[in-house]
Design a binder for these strands. Sequence first.
DNA 1: AGCGTGACGAGTA
DNA 2: ATACTCGCCACGC
Length: 128
Amino acid sequence: MSEERLPDDAHPAHADALPEFAERALEVAELIPPGRVMTYGDVAEWLEEGGPRQVGRVMALYGGAVPWWRVVRADGVLLPGHELRALEHYRAEGTPLKEASRAAEGHLPRLDMKRARWDGGERAQGHT
DNA sequence: AGCGTGACGAGTA
DNA sequence: ATACTCGCCACGC
Protein backbone atom coordinates (compact mmCIF):
# COMPACT_ATOMS: atom_id res chain seq x y z
CA MET A 1 0.00 0.00 0.00
CA SER A 2 2.18 2.77 -1.20
CA GLU A 3 -0.88 4.99 -1.10
CA GLU A 4 -0.46 5.40 2.61
CA ARG A 5 2.05 8.13 1.88
CA LEU A 6 0.62 11.45 2.97
CA PRO A 7 0.78 14.72 1.07
CA ASP A 8 4.10 16.36 1.81
CA ASP A 9 2.77 19.83 1.29
CA ALA A 10 0.37 19.28 4.15
CA HIS A 11 3.10 18.46 6.64
CA PRO A 12 6.51 19.04 5.13
CA ALA A 13 8.28 18.37 8.39
CA HIS A 14 6.75 15.07 9.44
CA ALA A 15 4.32 13.40 7.10
CA ASP A 16 3.97 10.64 9.68
CA ALA A 17 2.67 12.87 12.42
CA LEU A 18 -0.91 13.85 11.77
CA PRO A 19 -2.76 16.22 14.04
CA GLU A 20 -4.39 14.14 16.73
CA PHE A 21 -7.85 15.13 15.57
CA ALA A 22 -7.12 14.00 12.04
CA GLU A 23 -5.66 10.75 13.24
CA ARG A 24 -8.72 9.99 15.32
CA ALA A 25 -11.11 10.96 12.55
CA LEU A 26 -9.39 8.57 10.15
CA GLU A 27 -9.49 5.89 12.80
CA VAL A 28 -13.25 6.22 13.07
CA ALA A 29 -13.63 6.09 9.30
CA GLU A 30 -11.90 2.72 9.26
CA LEU A 31 -14.37 1.37 11.79
CA ILE A 32 -17.38 1.94 9.58
CA PRO A 33 -18.51 -1.45 8.28
CA PRO A 34 -19.02 -2.03 4.56
CA GLY A 35 -22.53 -1.25 3.43
CA ARG A 36 -22.95 1.46 6.05
CA VAL A 37 -21.97 5.12 6.27
CA MET A 38 -21.39 7.76 8.91
CA THR A 39 -21.99 11.48 8.48
CA TYR A 40 -19.32 14.12 9.01
CA GLY A 41 -21.36 15.40 11.91
CA ASP A 42 -21.64 11.97 13.49
CA VAL A 43 -17.90 11.46 13.33
CA ALA A 44 -17.32 14.82 14.99
CA GLU A 45 -19.87 14.01 17.66
CA TRP A 46 -18.29 10.62 18.20
CA LEU A 47 -14.89 12.23 18.67
CA GLU A 48 -16.42 14.84 20.94
CA GLU A 49 -14.20 17.31 19.19
CA GLY A 50 -14.35 19.68 16.27
CA GLY A 51 -17.28 19.82 13.89
CA PRO A 52 -18.54 18.45 10.57
CA ARG A 53 -16.41 20.82 8.56
CA GLN A 54 -13.27 19.79 10.38
CA VAL A 55 -13.96 16.15 9.68
CA GLY A 56 -14.59 17.09 6.07
CA ARG A 57 -11.24 18.81 5.92
CA VAL A 58 -9.48 15.78 7.33
CA MET A 59 -11.10 13.51 4.77
CA ALA A 60 -10.22 15.91 1.97
CA LEU A 61 -6.57 15.89 3.01
CA TYR A 62 -6.01 12.33 4.17
CA GLY A 63 -9.10 10.43 3.02
CA GLY A 64 -7.05 8.47 0.52
CA ALA A 65 -5.78 6.22 3.30
CA VAL A 66 -9.24 5.17 4.49
CA PRO A 67 -12.64 4.16 3.06
CA TRP A 68 -13.55 7.80 2.46
CA TRP A 69 -16.80 6.90 0.69
CA ARG A 70 -18.24 5.74 4.02
CA VAL A 71 -18.07 9.24 5.48
CA VAL A 72 -20.85 11.24 3.89
CA ARG A 73 -23.06 14.29 4.03
CA ALA A 74 -26.10 14.11 6.27
CA ASP A 75 -28.48 14.63 3.35
CA GLY A 76 -27.17 11.59 1.50
CA VAL A 77 -26.02 13.52 -1.56
CA LEU A 78 -22.88 12.03 -3.07
CA LEU A 79 -19.81 14.20 -2.99
CA PRO A 80 -19.31 16.09 -6.25
CA GLY A 81 -16.18 14.96 -7.95
CA HIS A 82 -16.15 11.57 -6.26
CA GLU A 83 -19.75 10.56 -6.85
CA LEU A 84 -19.11 8.00 -9.57
CA ARG A 85 -16.27 6.36 -7.69
CA ALA A 86 -18.33 6.36 -4.50
CA LEU A 87 -21.37 4.97 -6.27
CA GLU A 88 -19.39 1.99 -7.46
CA HIS A 89 -18.34 1.27 -3.90
CA TYR A 90 -21.92 1.57 -2.65
CA ARG A 91 -23.28 -0.79 -5.25
CA ALA A 92 -20.45 -3.22 -4.56
CA GLU A 93 -21.02 -3.09 -0.80
CA GLY A 94 -24.78 -3.09 -1.02
CA THR A 95 -25.12 0.27 0.70
CA PRO A 96 -28.82 1.32 0.73
CA LEU A 97 -29.44 3.85 -2.02
CA LYS A 98 -32.46 5.92 -2.89
CA GLU A 99 -33.06 6.01 -6.62
CA ALA A 100 -33.70 9.40 -8.13
CA SER A 101 -37.35 10.24 -8.65
CA ARG A 102 -38.63 11.06 -12.13
CA ALA A 103 -38.52 14.74 -11.28
CA ALA A 104 -34.89 14.40 -10.36
CA GLU A 105 -34.17 12.30 -13.41
CA GLY A 106 -30.63 12.73 -14.56
CA HIS A 107 -29.36 13.00 -11.00
CA LEU A 108 -27.46 10.16 -9.43
CA PRO A 109 -29.10 8.21 -6.64
CA ARG A 110 -28.60 9.44 -3.09
CA LEU A 111 -27.83 7.39 -0.03
CA ASP A 112 -30.81 6.13 1.91
CA MET A 113 -29.58 7.61 5.16
CA LYS A 114 -32.38 6.10 7.19
CA ARG A 115 -31.01 2.65 6.46
CA ALA A 116 -27.35 3.28 5.67
CA ARG A 117 -26.47 5.50 8.62
CA TRP A 118 -24.31 3.72 11.16
CA ASP A 119 -24.21 5.10 14.68
CA GLY A 120 -20.81 3.75 15.56
CA GLY A 121 -21.66 0.61 17.44
CA GLU A 122 -25.41 0.16 17.38
CA ARG A 123 -25.36 0.46 21.12
CA ALA A 124 -28.78 0.13 22.67
CA GLN A 125 -29.97 -1.08 19.34
CA GLY A 126 -33.22 -2.93 19.72
CA HIS A 127 -34.08 -4.06 16.24
CA THR A 128 -32.99 -7.39 14.84
C1' DA B 1 -6.53 41.19 12.54
C1' DG B 2 -10.34 40.82 9.17
C1' DC B 3 -12.60 38.30 5.51
C1' DG B 4 -13.73 34.69 2.28
C1' DT B 5 -14.08 29.81 1.61
C1' DG B 6 -15.24 24.93 2.37
C1' DA B 7 -15.60 16.78 1.03
C1' DC B 8 -21.07 20.42 6.75
C1' DG B 9 -25.77 20.69 9.37
C1' DA B 10 -30.13 22.25 10.62
C1' DG B 11 -33.86 25.37 10.11
C1' DT B 12 -37.06 28.06 7.34
C1' DA B 13 -39.68 29.67 3.21
C1' DA C 1 -37.78 19.27 -4.32
C1' DT C 2 -35.07 23.96 -4.30
C1' DA C 3 -32.96 28.25 -2.29
C1' DC C 4 -31.32 30.87 1.39
C1' DT C 5 -29.62 31.85 6.18
C1' DC C 6 -26.98 31.12 10.10
C1' DG C 7 -23.80 28.49 13.09
C1' DC C 8 -19.70 26.08 13.14
C1' DC C 9 -14.24 25.94 12.95
C1' DA C 10 -9.77 25.58 10.48
C1' DC C 11 -7.10 27.74 6.51
C1' DG C 12 -5.29 30.99 3.45
C1' DC C 13 -4.94 35.59 1.63
